[in-house]
């Protein structure tokens, strides 16, 4: 699967209600060891409630300058959340979440921000 086919899809909960747009896909390099790097495992998806686009990940890290831009983007992406891969029930024209899906903070670990 090509990742750009997944990004920008609508994300629906188990009742079919739109909960946001898929704006990014999170990988963790903790898979099977490879020749140089371990496998990059798909950990989850970043869902934005407000917009289908994102800009420099301001809503996911501790960057706070330029102040006005940071505040605007923080406001625009308010309520963004991470959903683990195992909480995805099906993918077709949209991403369907399981009834038990959990909203997690989309923040990046501080050492990567």
């Amino acid at each position: 699967m090509i990742l750009s086919d997944l990004i920008h899809k609508k994300v629906l909960d188990a009742e079919g209600t739109v909960v946001g747009n898929l704006v990014d896909v999170r990988f963790v390099i903790d898979g099977a060891p490879g020749q140089l790097l371990a496998s990059a495992r798909l950990h989850g998806i970043i869902v934005s409630r407000g917009t289908a686009s994102t800009f420099l990940g301001y809503e996911r890290n501790s960057a706070n300058s330029p102040f006005i831009l940071a505040k605007f983007l923080e406001w625009r992406h308010r309520g963004s959340f991470l959903v683990r891969w195992r909480d995805i029930a099906m993918i077709d024209d949209a991403v369907h979440l399981r009834a038990s899906f959990q909203r997690l903070s989309p923040n990046l670990p501080q050492n990567r921000s």
């Binding site: 999170r26 997690l104 670990p109």
Partner: peptide
Amino acid sequence: TDYPEETYAGRVLDADL
């Protein structure tokens, strides 16, 4: 929003970012 923080066992990469 105060969603629970996730923990990671390895380096985190967001594809678009």
